[in-house]
Amino acid sequence: MNEEKEVEEQSIPLVLEKLEEHHADALLSQDEMRGTIVAVVRKEQVYAVLEYLKTDPELAYTFLVDVTAVDNSQMESELMQFDYARFMVVYQLYSYQGQCRVRVKVPVHENDLSVPSVTGLWRGANWLERETYDMFGINFEGHPDLRRILTPDDFQGHPLQKDYPLRGRGERESFNFDKQNA
């Protein structure tokens, strides 16, 4: 148990150093929160950073835990930090080898809602990116099958965007049984 703890503590400065060394131009900020590294990365380099974190033998963040997004449109303090990018796409990674976690965040502007898909690195990213697309409207470029996954195929809008009304736009009262059964 104590040995595991040591591994964790060693890895935190390691990943900070290595990211600074190899991808300094991609980093907008990096921080540590409750034992997790939080790295904010430019959209253009996010694929390279994630690939580096996964394939570097010392880091080996091989497990993509989650892909999701945050709509900061009502969080002025968050918006100001990254040039008023409305969305933040979030990747949670875990390294079995170092037993520690990294959170990679990518600011995405509303006028260009796209991020490169990481399905090439992790096949498990497929459905996670579909969910993020469905809920937030983020387009993952290069995704093999970017369809809605939770809401019906003919659903309009992206419900986890903050301007989407909680009770919806009448979807739950009006839908066409015949069309969906066909």
Binding site: T151, Y164, L166, R167, G168, R169, R172, E173
Partner: peptide, 12 residues
């Protein structure tokens, strides 16, 4: 669950 996705009573 008074939300966009949930039927508010199947008797509709």
């Amino acid at each position: 669950f008074d939300t966009y996705t949930l039927i508010q009573g199947v008797d509709q």
